[in-house]
Amino acid sequence: MSKKFDMELFLAAVLTGSHATRQRHVRQAKIIQAEIAERWLQETPWGWQRKHVAWFLEHRMSHRSEATRYYYLLTVRLLARRLDKSWVFYL
C-alpha cells in the first residue's frame, strides 16, 4: 500500500501570500495532478515533463475564462519553481 502524494507538503517551500491564496494554489495543483495522472499516468510532479503541463493548460483550460487560466498559470509557475524547471508558459 503506497502513501498518497501530499501536494500541500510538496508546494510548502514555494507558497507565499495569504491563507486563501495558498489554499487556491494547493487546490489547483491537485486538479492539475489529477488530470495529468488520468491522461499521462504520472502520479507525482517529479515525473512530469513540460508537455504534460502544456497539455493541461492548452486542452483542459481552453474553455475557461481568461481570469481562471491566469490563476492556473500562476500555480503552474509555482510547480515549475518547486521542480526547479525553467518551463515558460503563456496565456
Rank of each mutant, 00 (worst) to 15 (best):
W48R: 01
E43Y: 07
H63M: 11
Y71L: 14
A37N: 06
E38R: 15
T68C: 06
L41W: 11
R64I: 10
H63F: 10
W40P: 01
Y71W: 12
A67G: 07
R64Q: 13
W46L: 09
Y71E: 06
F56E: 00
R39M: 03
R64F: 14
Q42G: 00
H52S: 01
E58L: 15
S65G: 13
H59L: 14
E38F: 13
S65C: 07
A54Y: 13
E66Y: 11
L57A: 14
V53I: 13
R39C: 04
H52W: 05
F56K: 03
Q49I: 07
P45G: 08
F56P: 00
T44I: 07
H59K: 15
W40E: 01
E58P: 05
L73A: 05
Y71K: 10
E66R: 14
L41D: 04
G47A: 09
R64N: 10
P45C: 09
M61K: 11
Y72M: 06
E43I: 03
W46V: 10
A37E: 05
K51R: 14
K51G: 02
R64H: 13
A37D: 03
R60L: 12
H63A: 14
G47P: 05
L57W: 10
S65I: 10
R60P: 00
S62G: 05
H63D: 11
Y72P: 00
Q42I: 04
T68L: 07
P45Y: 04
W46D: 06
M61G: 04
S65F: 05
H52K: 01
W40Y: 12
A67V: 10
S62H: 13
H63Q: 14
A37K: 08
H63V: 13
R39A: 09
S62E: 05
E43W: 03
M61W: 06
T44C: 07
R60I: 02
L73M: 11
E66M: 09
Y70E: 02
L73E: 04
R39K: 13
H59G: 12
A67T: 08
F56V: 04
R69T: 08
Y71R: 09
E58A: 15
S62N: 08
V53Q: 03
R60G: 02
Q49K: 14
G47D: 07
S65R: 09
W55P: 02
T68D: 03
R50D: 00
H52L: 02
R64Y: 15
H59I: 13
S62A: 15
A67H: 13
M61E: 02
R69C: 06
T68G: 04
F56M: 08
A54Q: 12
R39I: 04
A67W: 10
H63Y: 06
R50Q: 07
Y70H: 10
R64D: 04
M61L: 15
H59Q: 15
W55Q: 01
T44P: 00
Q42S: 04
A67L: 11
R69A: 07
L73S: 03
E66D: 10
L41F: 12
T44D: 03
A37H: 09
R60F: 14
F56N: 00
W46Y: 11
R69G: 02
K51D: 06
W40F: 15
A67P: 00
E38W: 12
A37L: 05
H52I: 00
H52R: 00
M61V: 11
